[in-house]
């Protein structure tokens, strides 16, 4: 058998490839980005209406970061939605698609507007996803915020 396998062994390798760390999912990455969005919205509100150059520059910077982070939220939610969740999860949580759709819509709203209320709503949506996610793994993981 040894000789046979040596004769038959292919000389080339085809990679059914996956970049690490595959199979590692956690809504925490969406939560962290959403917290950054909320934080920026609060900072933008804290700046007030000042139109001097320094304030305008700072506001612009906060807006740029907010939009970047909101985009990261959307990307992280997408990864959970279409890579982690499977049809059997949908059977158990029929509102799964709706939850993700609304969360993604909220992320978009956070991109275009500056109201911290949107950030809070986004955090709520991610908490909802957090609950569903850990329920599919039969684990009881508490939702928390880095900036309470």
């Amino acid at each position: 058998m040894n000789l046979l396998t040596r004769l038959l062994a292919p000389r080339s390798v085809a990679f059914a490839h996956c970049d690490g760390p595959c199979g590692v999912y956690d809504p925490a990455s969406a939560r962290i980005a959403a917290e950054a969005v909320l934080s920026m919205e609060k900072k933008i509100a804290g700046l007030g209406d000042g139109q001097d150059a320094a304030t305008v520059n700072t506001r612009t910077r906060f807006i740029a970061i907010k939009e970047q982070q909101a985009e990261i939220v959307k990307k992280e939610l997408d990864i959970l939605w279409h890579d982690y969740f499977k049809p059997e999860h949908l059977e158990k949580f029929p509102n799964l698609h709706d939850t993700f759709w609304k969360a993604a819509k909220l992320a978009s709203k956070n991109k275009t507007e500056q109201d911290p209320a949107n950030g809070e709503a986004l955090m709520g949506a991610i908490e909802e996803i957090h609950k569903i996610f850990w329920a599919t793994k039969n684990r009881d993981v508490a939702f928390y915020r880095a900036n309470p």
């Binding site: 000389r11 085809a14 990679f15």
Partner: peptide, 23 residues
């Protein structure tokens, strides 16, 4: 054909790590 050894899990369940296939 040319033989290839499959490495990795991205083609499960169709192809498994260590499968030898003809291409």
């Amino acid at each position: 054909f040319r033989g290839f050894a499959v490495a990795g899990n991205s083609m499960l369940p169709t192809l498994a790590e260590g499968d030898w296939v003809l291409v």
